[in-house]
Amino acid sequence: MGHKYTGRTFIVEILAIALGLVFLVPFYYVVSNSLKPFAEILTNTSALPKVFQFENYVQAFEKLDYLNVFTNSLIITVSSNIVLVIFCSMAAYMLVRTKKKISNVIFMSFVAAMIIPFQSIMIPLIKTAGNFGLLNSMWGLVIMYLGFGSGMTIFLYHGFIKGIPVELEEAAIIDGCSRFGVFWRIVFPLLKPITVTIVILNSLWIWNDFLLPSLVLQDPELRTIPLATFFFFGQYTKQWDLALAALVLGIIPLLIFFFSMQKHIIKGITSGSIK
């Protein structure tokens, strides 16, 4: 592009940085106050902590049962991703390669259901889920994420698989490879770029989801990070020292995820939104 860095650009830059700082102000308040004793939060909210003390974190960590809660979130997010990727890629592949009416009907029903808002399903879902023993179990929740995530995941896989030439598979079949083998050995490895996008989009959604797990997981032992944060805030209202430390503990895993996958996340969002 070869633009010169002019005085005007400099002014724009200053403005942009100021705006960036405004965006960061809430994080500053939460993090700096989470390191203060309670009295100091009330008297000196805006200042940096006089002494950095991690006492709040030690307490919040224990009271949140953080290790357990973190593990729950991790198990649920990882297993949901695994089942979504396996079953949706298989289904999308078969739906693309079987040129029959039924493939179209099934595909369209997955896509059409994407517009149903969760609130329109949740009430009967909780009842049906009770009948099938899916309530109060992580596996029940994972099956629900498979159901809710299937629309978008199949949609993205379907679009991608349509662009893969069929000749490769034909050659493998002539060589005596089974359909199952063809899919897992030849097609699935080619799906890697879209799989990365799908895993990122689904991970952010599932990790942050609050409403569904709050309806499904009643046992405190099973709580995820958003659930535990919610109950913690309810229990320690106005006890900002503990609440803020708990909040930061909830934010940290997301930041680590973001900074280790930044490029993929930005790419995933761009390609995922322009469907």
Binding site: A113, I116, I121, I123, P124, L125, F132, G147, G151
Partner: peptide
């Protein structure tokens, strides 16, 4: 899963 979780409740 889709039928059980989305279609039937809907």
């Amino acid at each position: 899963a889709f039928t059980l979780i989305v279609l039937i409740p809907f």
